[in-house]
Structure formats: structure tokens, C-alpha cells
Nucleic acid binder design. Structure first.
Lengths: 268, 268
DNA sequence: CGATCGTTTGACGGTGCTCAATCACCGTGG
DNA sequence: CCACGGTGATTGAGCACCGTCAAACGATCG
């Protein structure tokens, strides 16, 4: 059932040849653990089921928008960007995928990929062929649970993206982006203060729906304000407190705080 | 809360008269069909499994942000808005849920609801208690498939929301919103040209990340251009062709196209 | 070391946010 | 029946933010 597709490595085939075990295969419990599932309660017979692994060099495309959907991918290490072509040639970045993120599920209902996924650095991803996936889920409820959870996270993540975009002021958007990335780094066990952004300004700008010059300007503004230390793609959060305050602001600066009550408070 | 009033439903052609059976219970195959699943291949023993139904009056809250997640809900008829409180009191609309949409799945990984869902009109929703859901999915692979598909749609829908928000010009955002709603109406078997928006301008504005006055202005601008006929919350699409063109535009109007090749074409 | 790409900074003009007034449409009560 | 708020939608005026165009700067790599 569980078809072991040979990963079409974009890597040079010979150089990373397996010495001891094939590096293109990992046991199932690794995947379950990555997804935050309860790997311990995997049936012993299942925990070493082979899962295909695929390695991507920087700028290599994992899948292409519109291509038939054959596998679900889960990022193991590295990072990718998901982009959609917006008909007029404009490239819209829709997400940055980090370890544990699922790629491809959003295309299930149409049978084809919704976005192109491009590696931002050398990365590896698990590949779960759709053929046999249902059987595998039935066989391993633990994997099923883990996948459900991952999808739930994915959905919440999409909401977070919308929340960033919904901010009116560009600086607020960027602050939310930084905090969001920091939160994800924390979830992965990294430091939330030291960010190494793998994507260029233009990609961030695309995700946030602003001009890339504006991203630059907002970075320097916040750096001047002592919120960040920005050195190219290395971003250090110096004052999470005030950074969160800025991310919370519905409207932009107002740094000289006129302590008058908030003008906002809307609707319902 | 749950006001059980006599449904005076002339709306649904529901031949499954609520007179005989409890109107708060529906057979499983109805839900599967709503989700776009293959109801025909349900096991005969399963197709009449009872699914709880809940009725909501306008402005009634189905679930509250932060509340523990007990059930997955699927909209049966009517519509709801999903809102999040943005810490500073601002109400951010994150989605409009239409029949077939799943509510609550995004909170699965945290065990609590991510957003508050409020009925925009008299609505009914299916309720699938999480307890026993896994067993039910195991028992009915057809339901499982249908749920997977619905979740995939949900994810793609979130991407569509982001795509609307990512448009730089507010008029473009609104055009995309109209077309997106039209597409959803088509998928539900309604006319794509006649929209009856159940939400107020402020809610649309919140979803699109613009001021509500701007929504008003954009509506009148597009109406003056002959793209729409706007009468309060009834919106008729007069020229889908040009409407799509406007939705495609990365930057705003510039209808007389300065034939210079597009400056864009990015990345990758 | 020169070419290319990414990043930053500047100047300018326009879009859209804020503030505010007006209008339309209600359901309520006089 | 018509005044009376109350809510939502529309329109106007002013100004700041940010998108566009442009150039300088920096980094990386052949």
C-alpha cells in the first residue's frame, strides 16, 4: 500500500549516496515526532515504516502550482516559500514553511497544487504519497492524529497570515511578522530573539502586501527606535515588550504618546 | 442562547419535513452530501446515523473565542462571520462561513476556539462532538474523506482571503471580494451575479483591512464605472469581464493602460 | 576586480485613513 | 400619523502614509 516512491532528487545523485542507511528514507516515528504526535504510542510494528525523504537545494522547487497533487509533503528541516502567480505575472508569496509544516494539503480538493513551493535554503521534506495515505492513516491512528493537529496548526497559521495583512500600517505588519516568526522559532526550540530570515525583502514585502522599499524603511525605523537590530537578514529583537505594543497598534506610530485614551474600539 | 423556535422555513425546499422527526437531528448522509462527499457509498447502516443540528438566530454566537473546543461545526444553511478580538479592542473579521464550511477545526491544536462565530442571519449548523469523532471517522471512511476535502477547501479559502488582503489597492481588494463571494455562490448553486451580502460594510472593511468608508467609496466608484449595481447590501455584477480585470490589477485603476510592459515579475 | 543582485535611502505624488456631516431606513413611542 | 433616536451607508475635506521612480550602496560570486 504505502508506495515507496523514489524521490526524484534534485541533488546530484551520486554524491550523497547512502553509506549505511539510505538517507532518503526515515522511519515513521521520526515524522510523527516532528508533527508533535505521540510517537511513543506507535505500534512497534509501525514505528519503523519507511517514509520517503526528499532533499532540496536552495531555489529548487518542491512542487509547482497547478501540477497534479501526488504527495503530501512535510518540511523536516530548512524552509520554503509558497508562491502563487497572480495572473498578471506578479508573484504573490502566500506562506513560509518551516519544519513541521504541511505542504500540499490545500490542493487536495482540486487534485492539484495551489502554490509553488521553493526552498529558501538546503532543505529536506517528507513525502507521503496520497495513494495509500488513507490506508496508512487507518493503520496508524497516531499518525492520523498528528496529521490532524498539523493541519489545524496550518489553518491557524493561515489566520495569522491574514491577521498580519489586516493591519493597516506597514510598520505594524512588519512587527507582527517578526513576532510571528519569533513565535514559530520558539515552537521549534530556537531562540525567539535571534532571527535569521532566509527570504529576501521582496518576499517579505509580498507576503505582507507592501512595497519592498517599505519593508526596508520599516526595518530601519524600528531599528532606530531600539526595537530591533537589523543586519541584512539577521534580525535581533531588542525589546519584545515594545515590539508587541507596536504590533498591537491598529494605527501606526503615535510614538509621542498622547496619553489620551485610544481613539479606536470598533464594531461588533 | 440556543433559542429553539418554530422554523418557519419556506426557505429550504427540505422535503425532509421537520414535522415527523426531531428538527435538531439530521441523518449523516445529509451532512456527507453537504460536504461534497460520496453519500451514495455510505454503508446503509451508517447513512442514517444521527447528527446534531443547531439553530441560530441572527447575531447569536455559535462559539466564543477562547472557549474550549467541544465540537466541530459545519454550516448547513445561513451564514456566519468569524471575528477575533485584537487585544486592543478592535474586532477583526477573519472569515465569512457559508454552507459547507467547517468552523472550529483551526482550534484543534490548542483545544480552544480561535475565533468567535456569529450568525449573520438565521442559520443552522451541524455539530460533530470531538469525543467520538475519530471513531466515527474510522467507521465511515466516506465521512472522513468528505471532512478532509472540506478542510482542504477551508485551507484554500484562507489562502484566498490572504490574496484579497495582499492586493495593494482597496478597490482591487473589494473587486476580489465580490468575485470570491460570487465564486462561492456558484459553488453553492446560486447565481454568481446576484449577491445578497449579509454583513455590514464595517465587517467587509475589517476582512479586507480597509476603512469602512473606503468600502463605500469603492462600491460607488465601481458602480459609476458600470461594473456593479449596488443597492445597500444587494450587489449585482454587471460586467464580470471588467470586474475580473480590476481584480487582477496589482495596482489600482489606470484603466487607460500605459502600455509599458509590466514592471513586475519577481523572484524565484 | 567587475557584474549582478539585494538593500537602503531620497523625493514626489496619490491613495486612503481620520474626522465629520448628511442621508436613508428602522422600530419605538407619543 | 409623525417626531424621535439609533444604526448603517454615503459623501466631503484635509493630510499623512506609502507606492512609484530613481540612485547610491553593499554583498556575493565568478
Amino acid at each position: 500500500m504505502l508506495a515507496l516512491m523514489r524521490p526524484q532528487g534534485s541533488t546530484t545523485p551520486g554524491s550523497w549516496a547512502a553509506t549505511r542507511s539510505d538517507p532518503r528514507i526515515r522511519p515513521l516515528h521520526d515524522l510523527v515526532r516532528l508533527l508533535g504526535g505521540d510517537a511513543a504510542s506507535l505500534a512497534p510494528a509501525d514505528e519503523r515504516l519507511p517514509v520517503a525523504l526528499r532533499r532540496l537545494d536552495e531555489d529548487a522547487a518542491l512542487v509547482h502550482e497547478g501540477a497534479p497533487l501526488h504527495s503530501l509533503h512535510i518540511v523536516r528541516c530548512g524552509s520554503l516559500k509558497c508562491v502563487r502567480a497572480l495572473e498578471d505575472g506578479y508573484q504573490q508569496v502566500t506562506a513560509f514553511a518551516l519544519p513541521g509544516d504541511v505542504i500540499g494539503f490545500d490542493g487536495l480538493h482540486r487534485g492539484q497544487h495551489i502554490a509553488t513551493a521553493v526552498a529558501l535554503e538546503t532543505s529536506t521534506v517528507y513525502a507521503l504519497p496520497l495513494a495509500g495515505l488513507q490506508a496508512l492513516r487507518q493503520r496508524c491512528p497516531v499518525l492520523d492524529d498528528a496529521l490532524q493537529l498539523a493541519l489545524s496548526r496550518q489553518l491557524a497559521s493561515a489566520a495569522a497570515t491574514a491577521e498580519m495583512l489586516a493591519a493597516v500600517a506597514s510598520e505594524v505588519r512588519l512587527a507582527r511578522f517578526i513576532l510571528w516568526m519569533a513565535a514559530r522559532m520558539t515552537a521549534l526550540g530556537w531562540s525567539p530573539r535571534q532571527l535569521r530570515l532566509r527570504m529576501c525583502r521582496r518576499d517579505i514585502a509580498s507576503l505582507l502586501g507592501v512595497a519592498h522599499e517599505t519593508v526596508s524603511r520599516s526595518f530601519t525605523t524600528m531599528a532606530d527606535a531600539g526595537l530591533l537590530k537589523v543586519e541584512n537578514r539577521d534580525v535581533e529583537s531588542l525589546d519584545l515588550q515594545r515590539l508587541q505594543a507596536r504590533a498591537r497598534a491598529t494605527r501606526s506610530l503615535a510614538d509621542g504618546r498622547p496619553p489620551g485614551a485610544h481613539p479606536v474600539a470598533l464594531a461588533a
